[in-house]
Each structure stands twice: as structure tokens, then as C-alpha cells.
Amino acid sequence: MNLDRLVAFAKAASLPVAIVIVWALVTETGWVAAYVLPPPRTVVATLIDFFFGGSSQAYSGKFMAHFVESLYRVAGGFACGAILGIPLGIVLGYNRRIGAFIEPTIELSRSIPGICWLPLALVWFGIGTGTSVFLIALGSFYSIFLSTLGGVRYVNPVLLRAGRSLGATESSLLTTVILPAAFPSILSGLRLGLSYSWIYMVLGEFTGVNYGLGALLLQSRDTMDTPLIIGLMAVIGGLGVISDRLMLLFMTRILGMDVR
């Protein structure tokens, strides 16, 4: 790491470090009650217990069990959102005539907040994985669909002209010009969709399932386990960042697409 990056890192880290110091000060001195805000070391200890076990708590050493359950829902829901959103976005972005029939309906349905679907989802899919996957699919679909549609529809017209004048046929234009040009937009839709997936995962698991990070978050409220609440918030946030990085890496390195 060179000096510039070190300085940049120090600047970025200064505020979080300050927050943790203040947090430690107000909690360790007893100004704030531990059940409202536990000290940082308690949160860290709880997380270590959650990951590696060591206590008699129900969650002790159970990270993988909860994580796998949540990951399974996020992956399933996000995959559904992407499998629906990308092709639909491509078709409607490419062909305005078909779009005229479908787009207004999608736009209208988008104004219903995702949370409002929860009761209906419970009726349809019952408590558990079905509801979570449905909500995640719904939440990620809109951003993936809209970004894909925009990327495909608003390709720089001069690139289309260049492609045609170089010998591309109307059908080959889609794969050789339109989709590569729309790729950065599709990727940003996927990233946004993935972050929504984690949000709706928590919502779906708040319905009272036994396993899952969101489920555990709700249970820890019931037991007033504030250290675990804060620890889980950090874990879910961290997983969101890691999954975003992994997808970016997959798209750029493995698929060899550029992001610009």
C-alpha cells in the first residue's frame, strides 16, 4: 500500500474510529445503560460467540446455520428477479411497441411499496422461505428491469449508426452493439437489486421463521439482546458489501466485461 492510499484510508477511517471511541466512552462510564447501548467489547464478544461458539446461548456458534438459510433465500430471490428483469428489460427496451403494452403496468405496480406485499405474500406463500423469496424477487426485479430497459433503449445512436454502416444486420446489432453498450447499466441494476435483496431478506424473515439472520434479529429483540442486535446489523451490512464486491468481480473478471 503506497502512502497516498494509506492517507486516504486514514481519512476514511477517522470518523468510524471516533464514533467507536465515543461509543466506548459513554457506555463504559455508565452514562448510557447497557441494555440500551452495550459497550463495543460486549458486541465484539457476542459476535465471536455467534461465529465460533463458547457460551450456552441459543445462537452460540450458529452463524453458519443462520447465514446459509438467509443466503439461500437471497440467492433464490435475486436470481428470480434477475431472470425476469434482464430479459424483460431487453425486450421492452429494444421494442417500444411491445413496451407500450407492458411498461405502464410495471410503472404503476412499482408505486406500491415492497413492504405492502408482505400480507398478501404470507397468504400466498405462508410463513418462511416462499414469502422471503417472493419479496426479494419483487424488490430486486424493479431496479434490474428498469436499469436494463434504460441501458438498452438509450444506447448512443451514433454507435448504432456505426454498427450498421460497418455491416451489422438488425439482428446482430443486438448482441454486438446494444447489449455491450447497455452492460454497465445492467450491472448497476444488478448491484442495486442485490442490495434490495438483503433488505427484503430481513423483511421476509421478520415473519417468524426459525433460522436466518433476519429471523435471529427479530428473536434478539424479543429477548432484549442488544449486543446481538447491533452485531447482526453489522454482519448483514458486511455481507451486503461482500456480495456486491463478489458480483462486481464476477462480472468484470470472469465474464470479461468492462464497467467503465
Partner: peptide
């Protein structure tokens, strides 16, 4: 008919 546009017509990817 080969065409050379003013600018920005190369495929950036």
C-alpha cells in the same frame, strides 16, 4: 459506405 463520425463513435468496450 464507410462512415467516420465527428467523435465518440468507437465502441468503448
Amino acid at each position: 459506405r464507410g462512415v467516420v463520425f465527428q467523435e465518440g463513435a468507437l465502441f468503448p468496450w
